[in-house]
Computed example of a mutant assay.
Amino acid sequence: MEQPNNPLHGVKLADILEKLVNHYGWYELGGLIRINCFNTNPSIKSSLKFLRRTPWAREKVEQLYLDTFH
Rank of each mutant, 00 (worst) to 15 (best):
D67A: 14
G25M: 02
P4M: 08
D67S: 14
P55H: 09
P4E: 02
Q3H: 13
W56V: 13
M1R: 04
K45Y: 13
F50P: 00
N6S: 14
Q63T: 12
L29G: 06
N6E: 13
L32Q: 06
N41L: 10
E59T: 08
G10P: 06
P55S: 11
V11M: 13
C37V: 15
T40A: 07
I35P: 01
R58S: 05
L64A: 00
P42F: 09
Y27N: 13
E28Q: 11
L51P: 00
P55D: 09
S47L: 05
K19H: 12
N36Q: 12
H9Q: 13
F50D: 04
R53K: 15
N6G: 13
N22Q: 15
T54D: 06
K45S: 14
L29P: 10
L64E: 01
L17W: 04
T54F: 01
N41W: 04
T54S: 09
D15M: 05
I16C: 01
N5H: 12
G30M: 10
F69K: 01
C37P: 02
L13T: 10
G25L: 12
E2A: 03
G10M: 03
L48M: 12
L51I: 08
W26F: 02
N22L: 15
W56S: 12
L32T: 02
N36C: 09
Q63A: 11
L8I: 07
L8T: 03
L13H: 05
A57P: 06
A57I: 00
H9R: 14
H9L: 12
S46W: 02
E59N: 08
P7H: 07
I16H: 04
R53M: 10
